[in-house]
Simulated scan of single mutants.
Amino acid sequence: MTEKNPDPTHIRLAKRVAEQLNCSRSTAEQFVEGGFVSVDGQVVEAPGARVRPDQTVTVAQDASLLELTPVTLLLHKPAGFEAGLGQPAPGGSAPHRSQASRSQGATPATSLLEIASHLAEDASGIRVLQRHFKQLECFTPLPTEASGLVVYTQDKRIARKLAEDIESLEQECIVEVQGDIAPNGLQRLCHGLSFNGRALPPIKVSWQSETKLRFALKGIRPGQIPAMCDAVGLTVVALKRIRIGRVPLSKVPEGQWRYLQPWEKF
């Protein structure tokens, strides 16, 4: 419906809606982006789409600007995808790499945020709209080699909460390791190690299986978990973040995402 050299008889969908509803152009654009407008029976979410005079434009009877609230998406990032470039993250490498080295060979995790990868069992009841994938911010980065929970939000309140409180929010990670742990290694992981010349505070560390450790800690620094494991004779094979604050990854499969529900708080 969009053209570089549009037919003068074709007009922008938002303009058509504004004329039909006798409302402002901005209000019409919000109705379109809210998924309330159909052209010949098909929902169109692009205000700039052009329509012909003979096409039927319908605005849903339940159209409301009250539903156009910002959303927060919880993604299960697979290893090999970049999320939150240049920001501190659990188990990450140096956060201040050049843009060229950061982008080489890795796909942005935002490429996974699309309708097709939405969790089918999402209990939020929110209708998926194209506008939900715009103006997203990430304050919960993960290194490319790690997997797990990454948060993308349009909500300024949540963005501010994560930006200001990420140091005090407990993060839970499952870390697959190999090697033989040193004597009293688990106790040392919990308390007694240092990182970058500073003694680490007490940390919750426990075995989940013969090869997997569970870490629950605050104020995590890039590279901290691999360095801790190395100090007790273990090598990190894989790292997966499963919780940030009180919000869990839950049963979201790798590469899929769900909406943060209204009652969930970090």
Rank of each mutant, 00 (worst) to 15 (best):
L136K: 10
L68I: 09
S24V: 13
E114F: 11
A106P: 02
G92I: 09
Q99W: 10
S24A: 10
V39L: 04
D122W: 06
A28M: 08
S98H: 11
A79T: 12
S117W: 07
D40G: 08
P53E: 08
K77F: 01
G148Q: 05
Q104G: 08
R97Y: 07
Q61S: 14
L136Q: 04
A94T: 12
K156P: 11
P95W: 08
R25F: 11
F36T: 08
Q55I: 06
V51H: 07
L113V: 11
S24D: 08
R52P: 01
R102T: 13
S111C: 12
R157F: 07
P53M: 05
L65F: 00
L68P: 00
T72C: 01
F133I: 04
E121I: 14
H132C: 05
L119R: 12
A63W: 00
S93C: 12
D122P: 02
D155T: 11
T110E: 09
L142I: 10
Q135Y: 10
F133L: 04
G41L: 06
L119P: 03
L73W: 05
R97C: 08
R97T: 14
L75W: 02
A28D: 04
L129M: 02
P95L: 00
C138W: 03
A109M: 07
N22P: 02
Q61K: 15
H96E: 12
E114Q: 15
L73Q: 08
H96Y: 14
G125S: 05
K156F: 06
P88F: 01
A79E: 02
L85K: 14
F133C: 02
T144P: 07
V51C: 04
